[in-house]
């Protein structure tokens, strides 16, 4: 039986961003499932468990942090990478303290994202930080 590719969940309310992130991950041979909001993603966990979640922080309804807390409460131990268009230092500290593998501000480079995803999948602790700013 062939090895299954790691499944990465991308949750973002912005369709174009959601699609672009999925393409980056697929180009690096990950399987990707995409969700438009946190509610749909949490609902999907009843049927499939991804290996990592790339979670937009600012979404209508449940925010990325709400989803992160829901995962913690459910003790699912799913590695979470938070991405956001609003860089807030205090937010970065909070989400990392709550167990997020990484916190990135948009736009983010593919190699940074892939490195974070890889480390998340290997459950290796990631040095707290963000991607280099895109110039």
């Amino acid at each position: 039986m062939a090895n299954r590719q790691p499944l990465i969940a991308v949750i973002d309310d912005e369709e174009s961003v959601r699609l672009a992130l999925a393409r980056m991950l697929r180009a690096s041979s990950y399987d990707v499932s995409i969700y438009r909001n946190g509610e749909d993603f949490l609902e999907s966990l009843k049927t499939s468990m991804p290996d990592c979640a790339v979670l937009d922080f600012q979404m209508p309804g449940l925010t990325g942090r709400d989803v992160q807390r829901a995962l913690t409460v459910a003790k699912l131990h799913l590695p979470v990478i938070i991405v956001t268009a609003h860089d807030q230092p205090s937010l970065r500290e909070k989400v990392l303290a709550d167990g997020a593998v990484a916190y990135f501000t948009k736009p983010l480079r593919r190699d940074i994202l892939i490195a974070a995803v890889n480390q998340a999948i290997q459950r290796a602790p990631l040095v707290p930080g963000t991607s280099d700013p895109v110039t």
Partner: peptide
């Protein structure tokens, strides 16, 4: 948001 999409699509 669009810059993120552009970068993602381009790198992909």
């Amino acid at each position: 948001q669009p810059l993120t999409s552009i970068l993602g699509n381009a790198e992909a």
